[in-house]
Amino acid sequence: MSGVAFAINNKIHVIMLVQDADPLWYIQGYSGDVKREITGVLYHESSHIWQWNGNGKAPGGLIEGIADYVRLKAGLGPSHWVKPGQGDRWDQGYDVTAQFLSYCNSLRNGFVAQLNKKMRNGYSNQFFVDLLGKTVDQLWSDYKAKYRN
């Protein structure tokens, strides 16, 4: 099993991480600032409890990216996360999508919250046009160009 935690039925579960074929509890095996890391994980997983997923139609990478965006904005992004402008696709997920969403939110404060609200009953890439006036692909291009230099 890979990963740290998951949220289901409004409960957060910290799970086992298998490293070098020897299972160990993630918290015991973590060598950095454990309090900061677990707090970041809890921010991420708590986000899944309140966020909408477009009735299962939103890209998984966007769902994970929103949760990591919340962690990023709380100042709890780990040092190994990608820097702004890195990544291959806007919906790559986790830190890549979190950085992209941070850029989008800088264009319109409250964008991520408004995007989440729109995802209550479904999902469409049109939401980006509705909120920011550009397609998600154009926003991704603008984002990549901003950090290219």
Rank of each mutant, 00 (worst) to 15 (best):
G56Q: 11
N105R: 09
S79L: 14
G85I: 09
W52G: 00
I66P: 05
W90Y: 04
Q86T: 02
L72N: 15
A113E: 08
P84N: 05
D88P: 06
K83A: 14
K117A: 15
C104R: 12
A98L: 02
Q99L: 14
K57F: 10
R89C: 03
P78D: 12
W90P: 00
Y103G: 09
L101C: 03
G93N: 00
S106G: 08
S79P: 14
R108G: 01
L107Y: 12
P59S: 04
S79Y: 15
N116K: 03
F100G: 09
Q86L: 05
D68Q: 10
A67Y: 02
V112I: 03
K57P: 07
G77A: 15
L115Q: 08
W52I: 00
G110W: 04
E64P: 04
E64D: 06
I63V: 04
L72W: 12
P59V: 09
W50P: 01
G65F: 02
Q51I: 00
N53C: 04
G65A: 02
L76V: 00
D91M: 04
L107Q: 13
V70S: 07
I63S: 03
P59I: 06
G93T: 05
A67R: 05
E64R: 00
V82A: 12
N105A: 10
Q114N: 12
D68E: 10
W90F: 05
L115N: 13
G75Q: 01
K73F: 13
W90V: 00
N109Y: 07
W50N: 01
F111Q: 07
D91G: 01
L101Y: 06
R108I: 00
L115R: 13
K57V: 13
G56H: 12
G75A: 04
E64H: 04
D95R: 11
Q99N: 15
I63D: 04
V82Q: 13
D95W: 08
L101H: 10
F111P: 07
F100Y: 11
Q114H: 13
I63T: 00
I66F: 05
A113G: 08
N109D: 09
Y69N: 06
P59C: 02
L62Y: 03
T97E: 04
A58E: 05
L76M: 07
D88L: 09
R108M: 06
D91S: 11
Q99D: 15
G61N: 04
V70R: 09
G54R: 08
T97Q: 09
G54Q: 13
R108D: 02
W90D: 00
D95G: 09
Q99K: 12
V82E: 14
L115G: 14
W81T: 11
A67V: 05
L107F: 11
G85L: 13
N116V: 01
G54F: 11
Q99Y: 12
N105W: 08
W52N: 10
Q114M: 14
G60D: 11
D95T: 11
Q51K: 04
V96L: 01
P78M: 09
G110P: 02
S79M: 15
G65L: 08
G56S: 10
L115W: 11
S106N: 10
L115F: 15
K117Q: 15
P84W: 11
E64C: 07
